[in-house]
Design a protein around this nucleic acid. Structure first.
Lengths: 110, 110
DNA sequence: AATATTAATCGTAATATTGCGATATAGTAA
DNA sequence: TTACTATATCGCAATATTACGATTAATATT
């Protein structure tokens, strides 16, 4: 087996899981932090900064891009990556409401 | 290779990644939602409710428990799972500040 | 004690992820 | 055109995840 049964879950659940999965890796968290701090937004710089191979960083960037979290604009020979603010803010709100749904007072079991 | 190089990242980055990874699965999101809504907090009930095998739910519960996000209290023959509010709130705050770190105005590149 | 009930663990097969060297692609500069 | 630079993709090996049937362990019930 080994295949997630996405069909039994709601679109919202699947989408949130996919977005979280894209962020749930230390290298990708580090990449996002670097991009946000604007210390580096170019693949090669990130590779040097983080100490991973260029191919590895490129792959992580692709995953973040596929998830819509970042977008890349061609800048001559290199590509400048930055946060996709729309997706970022939407995800931020989704997570906020997900975490807020656990109200401390309203406990009915345990 | 196939082994995440955790040693080159900070503890915070690794911890956040681990916590997010625990949540980043539709079944585990669904389990957390059920527990929060208190419709089901018992393994067997969750298995029936979500349509996954008991062994599968038990495995997902274990992962959430290992991550510290939920805790289980023995209730006769069964175990009642509930949110670990401390961990939940800490993670909520960490994520809030992570997402807030992307200030829309302060763009220095791209 | 014998039986039922519930959850955890084991073992396994299928699939996915991670990381990197090597190579391909595409733009820039000489 | 030729050489250079930067990123993307391919191919591979190692490891991790996912799901489930079967089994085990532990508590109730009769």
């Amino acid at each position: 087996m080994g295949l997630t049964k996405t069909e039994i879950f709601s679109d919202k659940q699947n989408q949130l899981a996919t977005a979280l999965k894209a962020i749930a890796h230390p290298a990708r968290i580090a990449i996002l932090q670097q991009i946000i701090a604007a210390k580096a937004c170019i693949c090669g710089d990130l590779a040097l900064e983080l100490g991973l191979a260029q191919a590895t960083i490129s792959q992580h960037l692709k995953e973040l891009k596929t998830a819509g979290i970042i977008k890349g604009t061609i800048e001559g020979v290199s590509v400048c990556y930055c946060i996709n603010d729309e997706v970022w803010n939407t995800l931020s709100k989704q997570l906020s409401s997900f975490f807020a749904s656990n109200e401390i007072d309203a406990k009915s079991c345990c």
